[in-house]
Amino acid sequence: MQSRLKKLATEIRIAQLEEFKARGFGHIGGALSITDCLAALYGEIMKFDPKNPQWEDRDRLVMSKGHAGPALYATLAIMGYFPMEMLKTLNANGTHLPSHCDKNLTPGIDMTTGSLGQGASTAAGLALGLKAQNKDCRVYLILGDGESQEGQVWEMALFAPQHKLNNFIAFLDNNKRQLDGYTSEICSIEPVDEKFKAFGWYTLRIDGSDPDKIVEAVNDAKANQGDKPAMIILDTVKGAGVKAIEDTKLNHHLNVGDEADGYIAELKAEME
């Protein structure tokens, strides 16, 4: 029996499979791996208003691994930011749902991302700017593990504790794979939790496939981060939730055809 949040995660997976299928291809591996985190954020953690996407006191989310945009679009549609039908326009000519997140095109997207590493800094800037104005809201950041090979991530990792950004909670979607293969074989970031601890972050490392555990970790961070930023390392599987995609080694960007109907049927069965 799936929990409420796990059910939401499954719904998001189904919606994004339909979204990818409509276009026929996309960055599906890293979209699926961050889905449980999105279910936790939008199902429980974040303060937001789909009727007023620019609400000043909302929590912000920066999807720094911008290619996971389609997972976020599916979540935003389910939350009511725009009609579910719009998901079928992913990457269509003139779309409001481009491959990478664009805050000027999509309601509910708080920051434009895509060039990896940059969302780390813009998220820290949002946190600093909101703090300077005494705003009672938080900034959430999602980084990729491959993305964490970028130097800019580590510039920000030094910066955020220095400026005591305790309104800032980051996730690292540690799905172990990048476009060209396994992260450990290309340029390992491990032990990544020890690295963030050493940089002065309140750091947790959890199973990233369980939205309820993600909620617990965020509550832990809020209660215990003190004057530090928090980093929650999510151990995930690239392609999570769809066995055939998990089992495809190079699953960063795949063609998605009629086989998606089978995956959707399996996910629906899991929900019941």
Binding site: T122, L126, L130, Q133
Partner: peptide, 18 residues
């Protein structure tokens, strides 16, 4: 500090925060 790339990103984020 000596991290120009981060500085420009932080500046962009601060703009988004108003």
């Amino acid at each position: 500090g000596i991290q120009e790339a981060n500085m420009i990103g932080v500046a962009a984020g601060m703009s988004a925060a108003g």
